[in-house]
């Protein structure tokens, strides 16, 4: 069959998922909406951020929630010179694993910076939240991290 005879069609698949958060993820998202971060205490007193309901290493229930951040350090980063349509920033930016002050794990988010030369593993960053009225209790309440000292 000639290729021109084979049909093709655009097809959009949409899932309007709404997920229940549970108490731990819900507490983290509630804190984000308030412009702050919390983590959960896991095995050996390690603080997991963002918090999971169970310790990712032992599977045990996590303990009390503790306040962390809003500053932290970059554990690793990747420079995006051409943002994709669903990326959180629509100008060149870095994805980074940021270990917030007081946390023992890193969280994934965007870092706004003028260019890759401004960034380094170990660099200090701090949170830049969306305006309070726009926050809904999701990861997008955090607009991005920015370099401490306001380089961005």
């Amino acid at each position: 069959m000639a290729e021109s005879e084979v049909l093709h069609a655009e097809h959009r698949l949409e899932y309007p998922y709404a997920r229940s958060t549970g108490p731990i993820i819900g507490a983290f998202l509630t804190a984000l909406r308030e412009g702050r971060f919390v983590g959960a205490t896991g095995s050996e007193g390690k603080v997991i951020v963002p918090p999971t309901e169970y310790d990712p290493l032992t599977g045990d229930d996590v303990g009390e929630l503790v306040e962390v951040g809003p500053g932290g350090v970059i554990d690793s980063w990747a420079w995006v010179s051409h943002p994709l349509r669903k990326h959180p920033l629509q100008v060149p930016f870095a994805w980074a694993l940021v270990r917030l002050d007081g946390a023992d794990t890193a969280m994934l988010h965007a870092v706004a910076a003028p260019g890759p030369e401004a960034l380094a593993t170990g660099a200090r960053v701090t949170a830049k939240f969306c305006p309070e009225a726009e926050r809904v209790g999701s990861m997008a309440d955090l607009e991005s991290f920015v370099l401490e000292g306001g380089a961005a």
């Binding site: 005879e5 084979v6 959009r12 997920r19 958060t21």
Partner: peptide, 28 residues
């Protein structure tokens, strides 16, 4: 507002669908 208990995570994906050779013949 109370604590966050739900999170909306809408997903939208675009595909190019092809029914294949035989089904295209049927549709033609």
């Amino acid at each position: 507002q109370g604590p966050v208990t739900m999170l909306a995570t809408p997903i939208s994906l675009d595909f190019e669908f092809t029914p294949g050779v035989a089904q295209s013949k049927f549709l033609r």
